[in-house]
Design a protein around this nucleic acid. Sequence first.
DNA 1: TTCTCTGCAAAGACTTTGCAGTAGG
DNA 2: CCTACTGCAAAGTCTTTGCAGAGAA
Lengths: 144, 144
Amino acid sequence: MSCEQGFFKSLHGKGLRLTPQRKEILSALHELDQLATAEEIFQYTQRKSPHLDISTVYRTLELLKKFQIVTCLQGNDGQYRYELVHTHAPHVHLVCRLCGRVLEAAIDSLEPFVSCMQGQYGFQVDVNSLSVGGLCRECCARMR
Amino acid sequence: MSCEQGFFKSLHGKGLRLTPQRKEILSALHELDQLATAEEIFQYTQRKSPHLDISTVYRTLELLKKFQIVTCLQGNDGQYRYELVHTHAPHVHLVCRLCGRVLEAAIDSLEPFVSCMQGQYGFQVDVNSLSVGGLCRECCARMR
DNA sequence: TTCTCTGCAAAGACTTTGCAGTAGG
DNA sequence: CCTACTGCAAAGTCTTTGCAGAGAA
């Protein structure tokens, strides 16, 4: 698991440690392989490590975020959701404001925007953690 | 205040009422004239209406959101922030992930993306409530 | 008069923190 | 062996809800 190696290096560089709990959480993120809340990740770890605490999940996610191994976004409901950065192709999330469903979308068409923000405002967009609200096809249809 | 009239009509159409508290909150949004948290809006109302309760602020913002009079986004810190939809030109918010500062940016360059999401996924992007994470010019510079 | 709205207080949902014992490097 | 990490419990933060009295239409 190359991700774990990278994580270990990042940790080691700062005098931090690779514990079984951290491995377990990283592994849960891999296996879930989609946006997941801290609670969902926690539930997942419980099968194998029933003593792992949810506060450890939060602390580890915080760490993974710092090292840019996971990104995090907030859904409809205000909860944070996490996913590994490099397992899928880069994408943005489309979050429906009615049904809350989340789609992944390609980022090619975003290029002009990203360049423009860089050029005009010196702002470097985190494409990986972009979350876009709106109406999904189904909810659009339902509204007429 | 045309906004208030629109609000009144929306309310009246559903058998709801325009109360002094709701006026006060709408007025606070106008005068703050920028993204503000429920708490900030609440604080602002306290000068003139010290008995207005924060739960009323939350309930009113919910209502204003339903009528699309305000939009709401979540900043760096997980708090919701609100602003009136039609007082500024349409814009997106650039939220710096380090310093938390929020810039307003023009939306022209976003057009290809919006069309593409519509075409490919049938997803109708809420441009007005788009919040984009990244690094601002200053924080970018500070990182080297 | 009617029924929505408000203030108050309390509960709720999610996340963070303090601490003392545990264990990675 | 040192000090970061964990589980536990408790506290925090922001937001929502229940209720009885107040007040807009």
